[in-house]
């Protein structure tokens, strides 16, 4: 069985982000990690392999060269192969372009199961998974918290729905996006890290490998970022003083009512 995992390298929470003076671009401190939710996807693929044995795990990203590190992390965890579709010169702000690039690779290679994160921590868009599934014309289930492989090319998954949980049986090939709680991602062992250092990472040029789902060049981008800005700063906190907790609470409720007008 071939399992494909999409991973994205994203800026760490702690990374400093500076907006350029013309507000047109961002400068991100060189602190990157594997997207939080994508680690659950990688871990789940490894668990499937451990259970079913005859499984090959490919991790794939559409990214510039710096993301090689993220691919190596996935290999160190236990993935078999890593592919980087080079995104240099592509407008990755448009999720359709990212999804086309990834779906095209999946289409050309052929996979039984695709896993990805529920959402990337940088763009927070939660688009790419379902878009890829749509291009490939396969079912998807969002935000899975449990996955169980059944026989005959089917899987049972549990996911969160509005106000509850749902269990579905899905025919493969299918795409699932990972929610926190799916598993506990492992920390790579030193032997894994050694192996990852030596693993050859395939780099693909999307222009030459073909994109059956439509153009991905800059001109085909449907969205453009006009500018970046900092969020509005809140004025500094007003500590409500008082002799007793009751007095403080009275003061708080008064300002919430009269000043902030939220009560």
């Amino acid at each position: 069985m071939n399992v494909l995992v999409f991973i994205k390298q994203v800026a760490d929470t702690e990374a400093r982000i500076i907006i350029s003076s013309d507000q047109k671009s961002l400068e991100i401190e060189n602190k990157y990690t594997v997207n939080f939710f994508d680690e659950f996807a990688v871990e789940e693929a490894i668990r499937i392999k451990e259970a079913l044995k005859d499984v090959q795990i490919t991790v794939c990203t559409f990214a510039p060269a710096r993301a090689t590190e993220a691919l190596r992390t996935a290999i160190a965890m236990g993935a078999d192969r890593a592919v980087r579709i080079d995104s240099t010169n592509f407008a990755t702000d448009d999720p359709l372009i990212v999804a086309r690039a990834l779906a095209s690779y999946a289409k050309i290679e052929g996979f039984d199961l695709i896993l990805c994160g529920r959402q990337a921590m940088d763009d927070e868009s939660a688009n790419v998974g379902a878009m890829v599934a749509e291009f490939l014309n396969i079912p998807h289930v969002s935000q899975i918290s449990r996955l169980h492989m059944l026989d005959a090319g089917r899987a049972e998954v549990e996911n969160e729905i509005e106000g509850g949980k749902k269990v579905s049986e899905v025919t493969l090939p299918a795409l699932f996006t990972a929610q926190k709680g799916l598993n506990e991602p492992r920390v790579p062992l030193i032997t894994g890290v050694m192996k990852a250092m030596k693993t050859e990472i395939t780099v693909l040029d999307p222009a030459s490998s073909g994109t059956p789902f439509g153009p991905i060049d800059d001109g085909s981008s449907r969205v453009s970022v006009l500018s970046y800005e900092l969020p509005a700063q809140r004025p500094s906190v007003r500590i409500i003083e008082g002799e007793t907790p009751e007095e403080k609470v009275k003061g708080l409720v008064r300002v919430l009512k009269e000043e902030a007008k939220v009560l």
Binding site: L96, A99, S125, A126, N127, A130, E134, F135, S142, R222
Partner: peptide, 20 residues
Amino acid sequence: MTGKDLFPRLAARFQAAMVS
């Protein structure tokens, strides 16, 4: 949860500009 599940599929179907 519904919007995040549904609209990306539609955006891909219609080649729409998607902002979520």
